[in-house]
């Protein structure tokens, strides 16, 4: 230990942390060499891992493209983003009447309708790829993003009457119900 070869003149030196006794090049060549060797080794390991990954990916791709009926994951159909934000600020006022929509109930109603549609499809068509494809296509029509922001400020007022409705939600719910009813009529239940 402690012996090192000078990088410049290849002179053998015995003590660490000193300059080369022949050309006065600073010590450190040995450590650098070993570090570099280690780095190249790990790079090689990484390259082999990547090579394996590529092979696997190619294998998976070749296997999947054969007879894929539904390319998207099934869960993706329920992707629906909604944001409802409501702020009501009442200050220095009296006799104020505010009525708002119960958004939470509406959202759960919407989820209930979606589940019912999926259920009707899966019962009538069976849990087949065909059934999944139909369900996915129906829900894709509702794959939307909604953002609702309401701000109401009331200040220094008297005898105010305010009504707010979340129109987006009620529209969505009605549309889902329409689809469910149409489906059910098609399979002769109603």
């Amino acid at each position: 230990m402690g012996r090192w070869n000078c990088t410049k003149c290849n002179q053998k030196n015995s003590k660490r942390k000193m300059n080369c006794k022949h050309c006065y090049t600073p010590c450190g060549s040995m450590e650098e060499e070993s570090v570099m060797a280690m780095e190249t080794e790990s790079v090689m390991v990484m390259e082999s891992v990547m090579a394996m990954d590529n092979r696997q990916v190619r294998y998976m791709r070749d296997n999947n493209s054969e007879d894929a009926l539904v390319d998207q994951g099934y869960d993706q159909i329920f992707l629906m983003e909604q944001e409802s934000d409501e702020l009501i600020w009442i200050k220095d006022s009296c006799n104020v009447n505010v009525s708002t929509t119960d958004t939470q109930g509406a959202v759960s109603l919407q989820v209930g309708l979606q589940l019912a549609i999926a259920l009707v499809i899966s019962i009538s068509l069976g849990d087949s790829e065909q059934g999944r494809a139909v369900a996915q296509e129906i829900f894709q029509k509702f794959d939307d993003e909604q953002s609702n922001k309401q701000r109401i400020y009331i200040e220094n007022s008297k005898d105010v009457d305010i009504h707010t409705t979340d129109t987006d939600l009620s529209l969505n719910i009605q549309a889902l119900l329409d689809v469910l009813l149409t489906l059910v009529v098609r399979i002769d239940v109603l």
Partner: peptide
């Protein structure tokens, strides 16, 4: 079962759409 389910959901939707919103004062 489907018929009952649909009818219940229909009543819920109808009552939501035509509801008299909760009052706060």
């Amino acid at each position: 079962a489907i018929k009952d389910l649909v009818e219940e959901l229909k009543t819920q939707v109808d009552s939501f759409v035509n509801q008299s919103p909760d009052k706060k004062e």
